[in-house]
Amino acid sequence: MEYIASTLTFTGIALIGVLGVYMVTGLTGLFSFGQAAFLAIGAYVSAVLFKNLGFPLPLAALVAMLVGLAAGLLVGLPTVRLRRDYISLVTFGFGEAIIAVLNNTANITGGAMGLSGVPQRTSFLLVLASVIVCVAIVVSYKNSKYGRQCLALRNDELAAKSMGINVERLKLVTFLIASVMTSFAGVLYVFYTTYVEPGAFGWVISAEWMIIVFVGGVNSLTGAVVATVLLTGLPEFLRFASEWRIAIYCIIVLLILNFRPSGIFGEHEISLRFLRRLFRKGDSAE
């Protein structure tokens, strides 16, 4: 039972990270290869503040998210003007730089040895509640003018600009929300595992999140959620196959690319309204 709860907790934390990637990559079409760095920022900042400086947990979490926001600004401000392919390079570099910083500030972060002795304060219920709140925010964002404009600019930036959309600002806003959200996931993470080391936040994690978004369907939040559960939850339950995890990943991605190039859900969402209609009409042709 405890094992299942722990797997679900990790899945939930990963899901919040994936939500960030979904907003940046799925909605807006920017490839962020450094998203996991925000997880690291959230985790380290909150843990150090709490453990070394005696900050109360909520304050430590808040400051961690603000630092995430500031880091997001630092990366975002110059990059939103760049072409899409350069954005992935810059965010990739940023992510690796953060890890280098963590490795080289051993007196604060413990360096490659990691930071241990953080008390466990995150529970499964807290993660569940956080996931629900984050999903709700992303749903609301997607169904607002912001989400619509993000999809528009992802599709055709020139046309989006000539519709009066401030493309650069919108990209920045989306990127910042994702940064804060991922930093928050980092707080949940460190106060659950009680131990973090820089290696856990490399670009591999960012890439994994992006794969999840693509497997689920770039445009579909439902897809992102389902794919997170499938790709991070299942392998945990299939522990015996854990060495095959990356291979399984690759096979799934290849299958998806071949048979459903736009992801499992493509652009479709399962909304409450959709479900209601499904049950009322029985077999709806839509």
Partner: peptide
Amino acid sequence: FRGLNVLQNVMT
């Protein structure tokens, strides 16, 4: 905008 429907295109 191809990812959006007709109404959403105008709404943007």
